[in-house]
Simulated scan of single mutants.
Amino acid sequence: MAKNPNRSGRAPSQRQLRVGELIRRTLSETLQRGDIHDPDLTSMSITVSEVRVSPDLRVATAYVLPLGGKGAEEAQAALRRNRYELRRIIGKALQIKHSPEIRFEVDDTFDRMDSTRRMFADENVQRDLRDQPEDD
């Protein structure tokens, strides 16, 4: 995925993980119900796969992908246009002191998995794997 918003290089805290998951659920439910009054956004089915939150909980990066993977840039643009309304909904649902700034990134996990599958299916890689001695 993209750069980790946790710049210290440490693993995210339990609080970051919990808040990230709550934001992910809230975003998913909001998009599924069509609570945002943007025809471009309501016409898309968007998956929110993960939300990473900064250590100070002020920035949340949501990794999103439209169903089927087509129109990712359009979905990202529509989400960015409506980020203030989404931020208000998240702040209301989470009931935390400061509602985090929401950033949207296209989730490229499936593309990377496909690329890895293609690499392992390559004839040269298969040959190298077959020729590798087994460690018993």
Score class of each variant (00 low, 15 high):
L27E: 03
N82R: 08
L129I: 14
D136C: 01
I102E: 03
N124Q: 12
A2T: 11
Y84L: 14
A62P: 03
P5L: 02
A121M: 01
Q76F: 00
Q32H: 15
R112S: 00
S45T: 15
M1T: 11
E74P: 00
Q95N: 13
I96G: 07
S115T: 08
R24Q: 10
A121R: 01
D135T: 12
A2K: 14
V48T: 08
R15D: 09
S13Q: 05
A72N: 06
L31G: 01
E101N: 06
P12D: 07
A62W: 03
A75D: 05
L17F: 05
A2R: 15
L129D: 03
A11I: 14
R25L: 13
Q14R: 12
V59I: 12
A2Q: 12
V59N: 01
A72M: 06
L65N: 09
R18K: 14
V51K: 04
T47A: 15
S49E: 09
M1H: 14
G69Q: 10
R88S: 10
K97H: 07
M1V: 12
T61Q: 09
D107R: 06
L65C: 13
D56P: 01
A62R: 06
S45K: 11
R80C: 08
T116P: 00
R52G: 06
R33K: 15
R18H: 09
A11G: 15
